[in-house]
Nucleic acid binder design. Structure first.
Lengths: 350, 350
DNA sequence: TTGTAAGCGTTATCAT
DNA sequence: ATGATAACGCTTACAA
């Protein structure tokens, strides 16, 4: 039934040329006379040959044209963060120069040793949000001798990182709010550690925090408002922002006049909580976010936020990977956020 | 500097065994005495050998262990639909039996012929939401002789499909609303074609519609409410739902008492529009969605909706792919939605 | 249980 | 511009 698929050697034979010539017709590495090219192509069509077998080519070249993206746990979790998706887009662009695709690998701790990490034919890997859990994945990849780049995480000695000016950016937006005259400011933060506990962040808790992004962004706020209280959300979502907002705005006496959220989603939740309490944003309450992602569902508001270059971060990771594969030295890259004035912050009312 | 990486033959030599024995130690295909296994493993560690080269193994086996997922356009677009992500999770599970990973391929129409589709070392492919644009991708994949499965789309003769009972499900939720006594019902639909035009859907426009999901779900509604007006949103998002909701609820005279949205996101937007007009949901307006995804930001509401088995759809696609790769016959699979009563629908007020 | 040997389908090198 | 040939690193009958 299934007649063995045609190979390059079949095509060469049919066209009456050597394998090398046929190969070159498809790779374009060398000049070939138009006449022979046409003959080869015709033979290929006749035999239903659609081009060199990718696995054979990979073996020979030593390249598969695939870059792995290692994500923690379920894809659902990883993609919960709305910056992840544009970042992947950028990454796809960044590795496009290699003609490479992106292989999604779940960093599943339940795997027995021989996970896909060890057996996947990839040229390089990008780790996103490298945590202690991904740490072992890193070791596997490194021992395979694969180039690795880490986005928003510290992988240790000599591994190129793509980082963000979280602290400075947080400070910048805090200064914006201070400039508007606000003095009663509260920070709504992302999770401080993997326990994802909601609630106020005591100095003790802060000292134990393991999520750099959270610590850094809070640090930025406190560079400007050293005494700003902080309340942690469990995850970055509108609902969590709503919960934090309710906790924060429930008691009129202790109400802040501005809230600095560590993500846009949290900010939207806080705005929604404000609406519940009949507070107008920005007249009664200023709310700022972080990330600058497209947030669905805030209607006519434009969130005041720090826009992070998500696509560029991904692209940069891809480009560093590409460099390493070309044998060029790769660098760690640091990105900065851009302040975006929106309609959700306003001067403190007299 | 970079001393050639150790190969299996190096390890075998070091351990004083044959290549085949060494190979078998890593693959576990055959029994090996504990003594020799230990020797081989020791040799491997000594030489820094981390296991068989995936590309070489792929070539030899004729399998790469990679399944491609072909998405239209930017990843951002593809992942805009919140059912896509759980579906990918299911897919990852479904192909796990192959030890396979998922390769994200963008179906980029700007590519010149030699796209990643032709050169990626994949064993099979899954097309999501197969449209006319993805149609050419399909041809490429087919001509490579790769097994292909299509989710929510029609790929034609003999290609296994994963489908959903869109029409029946839409009819079911419409019956629920009718049972509550509603007679003035409007449908808010997804895009009818790639032009993504907002606004009322005339019979003419419906006849020209190319998006099956939209047509089917509307058909289901009209099985119950033959004369229900329909208004199209440009995409499935809260903001689009808001826009449609405003258009629908602005004029008190012609206000429906129930809205059937074709996605949960649209439904949330409609609810928000209702809030803007001071309408209480569900007392003044019943709103139902479709999909049953976790929607962030509707606070205490639980959306009345048809829950579609997104994860299962993905898993099924993965399993069919796995079957085809084992040479077993693959089947098209049809999934059904489950009605979920929420707090956003209520009896029509007398 | 272990060894022998034949490929898998390319591409790269070198010669012509 | 084209051709001969040797790898690439492994898996798997099959033989011992």
């Amino acid at each position: 039934m299934a007649p063995r698929r045609a190979t390059l050697s079949d095509v060469a034979q049919e066209a009456g040329v050597s394998m090398s010539t046929a190969s070159v017709v498809f790779s374009g590495k060398t000049k070939v006379s138009d006449a022979t090219r046409d003959r080869v192509l015709a033979a290929a069509t006749a035999l239903g040959y659609t081009g060199p077998d990718p696995m054979a080519a990979s073996l020979r070249r030593g390249r598969s044209g695939i870059v792995a993206v290692v994500l923690e746990g379920q894809l659902r979790e990883a993609f919960l963060d709305p910056v992840t998706i544009p970042m992947m887009d950028g990454l796809a662009d960044g590795v496009a120069s290699l003609g490479a695709g992106i292989l999604l690998l779940r960093d599943d701790p339940t795997e027995d040793g021989a996970s896909a990490l060890t057996t996947a034919p990839v040229d390089a890997a990008v780790l996103i949000g490298c945590s202690t859990r991904t740490r072992s994945s890193l070791d596997v990849l490194r021992s395979r001798g694969l180039p690795v780049v880490v986005i928003e995480g510290d992988a240790g000695e000599g591994i190129p990182r793509i980082t963000l000016d979280n602290r400075e950016a947080a400070a910048e937006i805090a200064r914006h709010v201070r400039h508007l005259g606000h003095t009663d400011v509260v920070a709504v933060t992302l999770a401080t550690d993997s326990r994802r506990e909601r609630g106020g962040i005591s100095p003790d808790r802060l000292a134990r925090a393991t999520v750099d992004v959270t610590v850094d962004r809070l640090g930025g706020v406190r560079d400007v408002y050293p005494d700003a209280p902080a309340i942690s959300a469990a995850t970055s979502s509108i609902d969590e922002g709503l919960i934090a907002g309710r906790a924060l705005l429930g008691a009129p006496a202790s109400r802040p006049t501005a809230v600095l959220a560590q993500s846009d989603l949290l900010a939207v939740g806080v705005i929604r909580a404000a609406e519940e309490f009949g507070l107008r944003v920005p007249q009664d309450l200023s709310v700022a976010g972080f990330d600058g992602v497209r947030v669905d569902g805030i209607g006519d508001h434009v969130l005041t936020t720090m826009v992070q270059p998500a696509v560029e971060k991904g692209r940069a990771a891809g480009e560093q990977v590409a460099r390493m594969l070309r044998g060029e030295p790769a660098a760690s890259l640091h990105f900065t956020c851009l302040f975006r004035a929106g309609t959700t912050t306003a001067p403190r009312r007299p």
